[in-house]
């Protein structure tokens, strides 16, 4: 891009006072050296001056008093309670505020589903799924019962001996160490 193209793009902003001091100085310097850019500046200044004079002339004819009266009336008018509520809800659900709702809902749902990782058993208290599941059991020939106690949610594995073995065991128990 040439220097003239750069300056051409910046003249409008320079006239509006939007450039910083360094940019402004560079544009001024180029316009004073470059006849084409200087001419463009003069044209833009002319348009601006013309527009301003037209606006000033026209605005003198505009009746502003009724407009301000209407504005004041609206400000001073007491609003019904639901109007304020409607306005606030409209503000709340208008983008970009409504954009909050989506991640908030997602985060809440994910939070509900992941809460169990941080706080196991929160959903239905400590009793939730507290029954133990027995995958396999081998009592090596002895009788065994698997019981589930609903009130305390307790799984009980109970070992029994056949009566014959139990009697033998009882005898052995009295002699030496106990057996099943």
């Amino acid at each position: 891009m040439t220097r003239c193209e750069d300056t051409g793009k910046s003249i409008g902003r320079w006239l509006d006072g939007e450039l910083n001091p360094a940019q402004s100085a560079a544009v001024c310097e180029h316009m004073s050296d470059c006849p084409a850019c200087g001419e463009e500046r003069r044209q833009l200044e002319k348009i601006e001056t013309t527009l301003r004079s037209v606006l000033v002339a026209e605005s003198a004819r505009v009746e502003l008093a009724p407009l301000w009266r209407e504005v004041r009336q609206r400000i001073e008018r007491k609003r019904a309670w639901y109007e304020g509520l409607l306005e606030r809800s409209r503000e709340l659900f208008t983008a970009p505020r409504a954009a909050w709702a989506v991640p908030v809902v997602i985060a809440l749902l994910l939070g509900v589903f992941s809460l169990d990782s941080y706080w196991p058993g929160w959903r239905f208290g400590a009793s939730r799924n507290s029954f133990a599941a027995v995958d396999s059991i081998d009592a090596h020939g002895r009788s065994v019962a698997l019981l589930r106690e609903n009130e305390s949610k307790t799984t009980v594995i109970w070992l029994y001996e056949d009566q014959e073995v139990e009697n033998e065991a009882a005898e052995e128990e009295s002699k030496s160490s106990p057996a099943f």
């Binding site: 196991p120 058993g121 939730r128 059991i137 307790t154 009980v156 594995i157 070992l159 106990p178 099943f180």
Partner: peptide
């Protein structure tokens, strides 16, 4: 009990939960 196996089981319990194993005379 000594070298003799009495019971072999695999149980899945809730974290921080328990189960009961009972029956052996003592």
């Amino acid at each position: 009990q000594g070298d003799k196996p009495v019971l072999d089981t695999t149980v899945r319990i809730t974290n921080k939960g328990n189960f009961i194993l009972g029956g052996p005379p003592h």
